[in-house]
């Protein structure tokens, strides 16, 4: 068991530092797909690597060796993974499994509840207006999905800004963005190093919807203005609590996602950059390859153990 098994455990760290940059640099739709599949692939690869390491522990446990008719010493001699390492991998794997299952259950329940609420909202079409003094607008996944806007938000925007807002939310529904976010966040539950990737996915689905709204309305500046206006309106309504919330999330260091979105909309539309894409795919291929290599090593080890 050489370096191959450790590579999938290290690569998520690489994803961690590059995720935000990828979300800013790449065209949003590409970025969303890339980041989500990366998160999933890296979570799977790192979990597989942990499982492989943990499996070597089984071979070295004297108790199991007696039952399984092999020599624990033979296993230990042929495999450079210490038993301490292997047991640590066991624990990490168990923790990851628990965290992922819990997160998955919560996520599915939340989505189902949202879909049910969406279904019960009384509205003719896709749009539901709530008479709520707090300005808010969001897309609820469901069958059918709905766009929920409060009266306060609608009142504050003019006709064109409203259509920008609706185009943005509609993109979230037609693109099933809640799925991308769910996959990314579940991957992060399996491997916490991937949390930055999950938040990058959350950001890039917003950018995806912004860009689509800009295309539909034909006016990037309009969408930028709508986003900024809505943000200041919402922030102004909630005043301190929002700032406290943002501070609690540690966003004080640099400009948050909303100004970044406005900035991106005021600039030219992002182009594709094949170099970055190829590099990222290369990293994923490396993760897959090294996981396969480690699995192959494990099988070889088990064959040594198994032969009389």
């Amino acid at each position: 068991m050489h370096i191959a098994v450790y590579l999938p455990l290290v690569l998520p760290a690489l994803a961690m530092v590059s995720a935000r940059w990828l979300a800013w640099r790449l065209e949003p739709r590409t970025a969303t797909w890339l980041l989500t599949t990366s998160a999933l692939a890296l979570a799977a690869a790192s979990s597989a690597a942990l499982a492989i390491l943990a499996a070597t522990a089984l071979g070295q446990l004297p108790l199991l060796a007696v039952v399984g008719h092999w020599s624990a010493r033979v296993v230990g001699r042929n495999d450079p993974v210490s038993i301490a390492e292997a047991l640590t991998a066991c624990l990490l794997l168990a923790a990851a499994a628990c965290a992922t299952i819990r997160a998955a259950v919560r996520r599915v329940r939340a989505i189902v509840r949202a879909a049910r609420e969406s279904h019960r909202l009384r509205s003719a079409g896709r749009l539901a207006v709530l008479s709520d003094p707090a300005p808010d607008a969001y897309a609820l996944p469901g069958l059918p999905g709905r766009i929920v806007v409060t009266a306060a938000m609608l009142d504050a925007l003019d006709d064109r800004e409203r259509s920008a807002l609706l185009a943005h939310e509609r993109t979230h529904l037609t693109g099933a963005h809640y799925l991308f976010v769910a996959v990314a966040e579940l991957s992060a539950a399996a491997n916490p190093l991937l949390y930055p990737v999950a938040s990058a996915v959350r950001y890039s689905v917003e950018r995806w919807a912004d860009e689509r709204a800009a295309k539909v309305t034909g006016d990037r500046h309009l969408v930028a203005r709508t986003v900024g206006k809505a943000a200041l309106l919402t922030d102004g309504y909630h005043k301190k609590p929002f700032a406290t919330l943002a501070a609690a999330r540690g966003k004080l260091r640099r400009a948050g996602p909303v100004p970044r979105r406005v900035q991106a909309l005021l600039a030219a539309p992002p182009g594709s950059s094949p170099v970055v894409l190829v590099f990222a795919l290369g990293v994923l291929a490396l993760a897959a390859a090294s996981t396969a290599e480690a699995a192959h090593d494990l099988l070889a080890l088990l064959q040594i153990v198994g032969s009389p």
């Binding site: 989505i111 943002a246 400009a255 909303v258």
Partner: peptide, 16 residues
């Protein structure tokens, strides 16, 4: 965040 894709999120101190 799982449930809804909100049009705008919170602003930090500098964002405004």
């Amino acid at each position: 965040a799982a449930v809804l894709a909100r049009f705008v999120g919170g602003l930090n101190a500098r964002d405004e």
